[in-house]
């Protein structure tokens, strides 16, 4: 699984609204994300660190907590599953 690069959210579910519209994973282990400017909530992922271990991505979140997400990548689509079971997908830009 290669996270490095720019990703755009394709999921439009209610539970996925707290996740950003776009995210960029950088080679130095940092990420920067962008929420929908009109969203009612600040994105859970905004700026922080990420670590990939097997199929788990540990992301630091907007309040600095580090959360583990189950992740998979297939055909340019990156899918995360959060601890509450919400699934959110991104396509590579």
């Amino acid at each position: 699984m290669n996270l490095i690069g720019n990703w755009q959210k394709t999921t439009d579910s209610e539970c996925g609204k707290k996740y950003p519209a776009a995210i960029q994973f950088k080679a130095n282990g940092l990420y920067e994300a962008q929420g929908d400017p009109k969203a009612a909530v600040h994105p859970t992922w905004d700026v922080g660190t990420f670590k990939l271990k097997h199929d788990t991505v540990s992301l630091s979140t907007s309040n600095d907590a580090v959360i583990d997400y189950q992740a998979s990548e297939e055909a340019g689509t990156l899918t995360f599953r959060d601890p509450e079971g919400c699934t959110v997908a991104y396509r590579r830009l």
């Binding site: 940092l30 920067e32 600040h42 905004d46 700026v47 922080g48 660190t49 630091s60 907007s62 600095d64």
Partner: peptide
């Protein structure tokens, strides 16, 4: 200061190396 900034309603801000940027970004 950064965490209290969150308690004051601020979010991460990477426009400079200021209080609400993250330690990782600043060190990098």
């Amino acid at each position: 200061l950064h965490e209290i900034g969150h308690a004051m309603g601020l979010y991460h801000n990477t426009v400079d190396m200021g209080i609400m940027n993250t330690t990782d970004v600043i060190s990098a």
